[in-house]
Design a protein around this nucleic acid. Structure first.
Length: 196
DNA sequence: GCAATGATTTACT
DNA sequence: GTAAATCATTGCC
């Protein structure tokens, strides 16, 4: 079943990031459904420097982060890679969870088509830019609602024991100063689909 | 209006 | 291990 709006609209983005592990992210592109279990996330809040919306800096790009929880924030980075975030919290509280890696569970062949030839199948979705390409997401998906039928997250009933979750500092945000050290990255311990 | 730059990936020295 | 690819958005002129 799809995660309800109330899941996203809580005000604890770190907790939501942790609870998203083990849930399954689906997309529907031209009636082709692909999906992957979330194995790596990062929490971002406008209260810390790692976030695009730091200091409640509202721009055209991150506008969707200021909407209430349950929207998708898709952003193009380094000119060639897309990233998916899940907007959380309520209106004007710009918190979001970045989905960094998923484990493919549906539409494997379609994902392989989109990704092209790979040296190692574990590279299919083991990184933020890779999983968006595998799932067919691009920046036109920015602002889509996660309770609609193009992109959504399901709770499969799978329970992740607390000891299987590992927290660590986030990746690639050295510019964030002290906030870069916050252990707001969550991974499923030992999962092979986690990014390096 | 224009230059600087980044929540990355890939291929090559 | 390091560097290049590549472009929308941002922030300053």
């Amino acid at each position: 079943m799809k995660l309800p709006e109330s899941f996203y609209q809580r005000n604890n983005v770190v907790r939501i990031a942790r609870e998203l592990l083990g849930k399954v992210l689906f997309t529907n592109v031209d009636n082709v459904v692909t999906g992957g279990m979330i194995v790596e996330t990062e929490a971002y809040s406008w209260k810390e420097r790692g976030c695009h919306a730091y200091g409640a800096r509202k721009t055209k790009r991150n506008d969707i982060m200021f909407a209430h929880g349950g929207h998708a924030y898709v952003y193009l980075c380094y000119g060639m890679h897309h990233m998916v975030n899940v907007v959380t919290n309520t209106e004007d509280q710009a918190d979001a969870v970045l989905i960094r890696a998923v484990e493919p569970v549906a539409g494997l062949t379609y994902m392989e088509d989109r990704r092209g030839r790979l040296s190692n199948k574990f590279h299919l979705t083991s990184g933020p830019g890779k999983l968006t390409k595998a799932l067919g997401i691009d920046r036109k998906w920015n602002g889509k609602y996660l309770l609609d039928d193009e992109i959504w997250i399901e709770d499969t009933g799978k329970v992740i024991p607390a000891k299987a979750i590992e927290a660590s500092p986030r990746i690639g945000i050295d510019y964030a100063g002290d906030d870069a050290a916050l252990p707001w990255r969550f991974t499923l311990k030992g999962n092979l689909w986690i990014s390096r």
